[in-house]
Nucleic acid binder design. Structure first.
Ligand code: MN
Ligand code: MN
Length: 544
DNA sequence: TTCACCGTAG
DNA sequence: TTCACACAGTCTA
DNA sequence: GACTGTGTGTCTCTACGGTGAAAG
């Protein structure tokens, strides 16, 4: 077991690296290309010291590193280890890196010492400006030799290789080696679900290559946010033209197209925006198309897209939009039901609006919390814990997931339809004791602290759960669960700010609004559910 | 001199 | 780096 | 009143030391 600030076993980080690479090799060796396999072999062939050092380097910010920051106790001979890594071409010493990037890694005193001839005018400059000025003033060879004089430098070669390994192991780039450490520390605990190594994220090289390609395009698009180049974005759209059969890829593709569409819209490149949104089979593509077409005065286009939405809405939100847009443009300017607002007047402008509203409301007793979506999501997570983690083929690909891959996919419920229906039956049962309360309490106790995308443990103390179980009727909770499971992507947003519990059967949900804040669409959808089911909920308008 | 922020470790 | 939310500014009915 | 663009908090945790940029 690992402890914070206590040195781990000498081979600890090396073992983590080996474990990740071995897993990837075992599962995916048939779809790795020759250079990837070669590098895998290079790493495996390293000696103890070099492997330990390399494992450390891969946890660093990189790819450019100062060689005078490599004092690791578990590496006996750092110089020799570096030589070995260079021999294996895993690092590059004296790399040809643009002078300013290297310069930026020096401290201000180091820059002044290495470039004493800099005019006094450079004295008060901010670091970024000083780096730029220095890089501009000296020719590249001079820069390089002086920088080499400060300390030795090294460059991790082929960072894309590690990217590929991480994607194959974790499925995305959100997690890295620190995942292992946090688990070994006990900071994060993961649900022990079964894994099937035959179920893979990528079936063949083409899919993996395509994922890496999408990642590259995403980087390019991000870069293009700085400066507007319509033809380059159009070229990216053309490379995203066709739907992907792999759902991971298809989601990425849709997101990218919507991002490009939004960027084009910002620059009033409406043709490009319409094209990008049009290729994205994903919200909010069609809504954006309607708004743009409306702005361009294309009534036929508008009604065509609206009809498509009505025919097969991606979500309740999209449907809501289509109805409302059609109504507003047409003859019946039917207003959405008005929601009555309560008023609260504060003596002074509050630092934390929701907190101020909470204390004001609880002045006469009761308990409450500012949880927003974490409230219904957390309860849902407790009630359906085992179903969320049930071994649906392909939805768990490594031991460090806090949810199945498809948690927010539209067919999450359908995939688990039988289990979910059975769970609802069970939770409604009331023979001996209230089944819902028993399950929530028991799951909370048994799973406390285990990582679950639906449950924010730190914001959800046990005492609060008890208050909730006393105050909120079972039918209300079940109605919310049912509502959410139909579309977790949509319903993970818009839940009211506050939950207030007053006593047995008595509670209220409150959305706090400052002076110039209106209910958003997702919030309206929740309030519509509350009205249908009879859940006590209010909008509280706060002024001061 | 103080303080916020970043990179790193575990 | 993602995501949901609030806020401020603009345009329209 | 609706819509858009932008800022903010939080982010899987916590602690620490160095650094840079502001205040004094
Ligand atoms: Mn809120
Ligand atoms: Mn609010």
């Amino acid at each position: 077991m690992l402890r914070p600030n206590v040195p781990p076993p000498p081979h600890y980080y090396a073992d983590n690296l080996t474990r990740l690479l071995d897993t990837v090799a075992r599962q995916y060796s048939d779809i790795l290309d020759t250079p990837e396999l070669a590098r895998l072999e290079q790493v495996r062939g390293l000696g103890v010291d070099a492997l330990r050092l390399y494992a450390r380097l891969l946890t660093r910010r990189g790819p450019l590193l100062r060689a005078d920051t490599l004092g690791y106790r578990e590496v006996a001979d750092t110089t020799a280890a570096l030589a070995r890594l260079a021999e294996a071409e895993l690092i590059n010493r004296n790399p040809a890196v643009p002078g300013d990037r290297v310069l930026a890694r020096l401290t201000l005193p180091e820059i002044r010492a290495a470039f004493p001839e800099l005019p006094a005018g450079c004295r008060g400059l901010r670091k970024a400006a000083l780096v730029a000025a220095t890089a501009a003033r000296y020719p590249e060879p001079v820069l390089r030799s002086r920088l080499a004089g400060v300390c030795a430098w090294l460059l991790l070669t082929d960072p894309d290789w590690l990217t590929a390994m991480r994607i194959l192991f974790f499925g995305d780039l959100r997690q890295d080696f620190s995942t292992f450490v946090l688990e070994d520390l006990g900071v994060v605990r993961y649900e022990p679900y079964p894994l099937d190594p035959k179920r893979r994220l990528f079936a063949n090289r083409t899919e993996l290559a395509r994922y890496l390609e999408l990642l590259r395009i995403k980087g390019e698009v991000r870069r293009l946010h700085q400066s507007w180049h319509e033809h380059q974005l159009l070229s990216h759209v053309e490379h995203l033209w066709h739907p992907e059969s792999n759902r991971l890829l298809e989601r990425q593709r849709g997101r990218l197209l919507n991002e490009i569409g939004r960027e084009a819209e910002r620059h009033c490149a409406f043709d490009l925006a319409l094209t990008a949104y049009g290729r994205a089979d994903r919200e909010p593509g069609r809504e954006r198309r309607v708004r743009i077409l409306h702005r361009l005065g294309d009534r036929d286009g508008v009604s065509q897209v609206l009809k498509a939405i009505e025919g097969a809405p991606h979500s309740a939100g999209e449907q809501h939009f289509a109805r409302q847009f059609a109504a507003r443009a047409g003859l019946a300017p039917k207003r959405g039901q008005r929601i009555v607002e309560l008023q609260l007047r504060l003596a002074a402008p509050p630092a934390d609006l929701e907190a101020a509203a909470l204390t004001a409301w609880l002045r006469n007793g009761g308990v409450g919390a500012h949880l927003e979506n974490r409230f219904p999501l957390g309860l849902l997570g407790l009630a359906f814990w085992d179903i969320v983690f049930m071994p649906v083929p392909g939805m768990f690909t490594h031991p460090y997931q806090s949810a199945p891959l498809d948690l927010y996919w539209p067919d999450f419920r359908q995939t688990r339809a039988t289990a979910i229906a059975r769970r609802f039956d069970e939770l409604r049962r009331n023979h001996v004791e209230d089944a819902l309360r028993v399950r929530l309490r028991e799951t909370y106790r048994a799973k406390y602290g285990v990582s679950n995308a639906l449950m924010a443990w730190s914001k959800f103390p046990a005492g609060f759960l008890e208050q909730v179980l006393r105050a909120v009727p079972r039918g209300h909770l079940l109605a919310m669960f049912d509502f959410m499971l139909d579309d977790l992507h949509q319903t993970r947003t818009g839940f009211p700010d506050l939950v207030l519990c007053f006593g047995p059967g008595s509670y209220r949900l409150v959305e706090v609004k400052g002076p110039g804040d209106q209910l958003r669409r997702e919030q309206r959808l929740w309030f519509e559910l509350f009205a249908r089911v009879g859940i006590p909920a209010s909008v509280l308008r706060v002024t001061w």
